[in-house]
């Protein structure tokens, strides 16, 4: 699970080592990546929103 999160974060940043990417594609389950990816997208939106609220005060 930790590895899935790490890979998703790497994808969000846009950079990942080729080896790890190959491992993910061969061993990981796509559903896990999709669910964590969607959750992280939500976290990103909420995060930016909180940042904007803080900055507006």
């Amino acid at each position: 699970m930790w590895q899935v999160l790490k890979s998703v974060l790497a994808a969000f940043f846009g950079v990942q080592k080729d080896q790890q990417r190959k491992k993910d594609f061969e061993e990981g389950r796509p559903t896990a990546f999709i669910i964590v990816g969607l959750l992280m997208a939500l976290v990103l939106v909420v995060g930016i929103f909180l940042l904007a609220t803080t900055a507006a005060e």
Binding site: F49, T53, A56
Partner: peptide
């Protein structure tokens, strides 16, 4: 807040 959110 909306201006800031969409700017970021």
């Amino acid at each position: 807040v909306a201006e800031l959110f969409f700017m970021y």
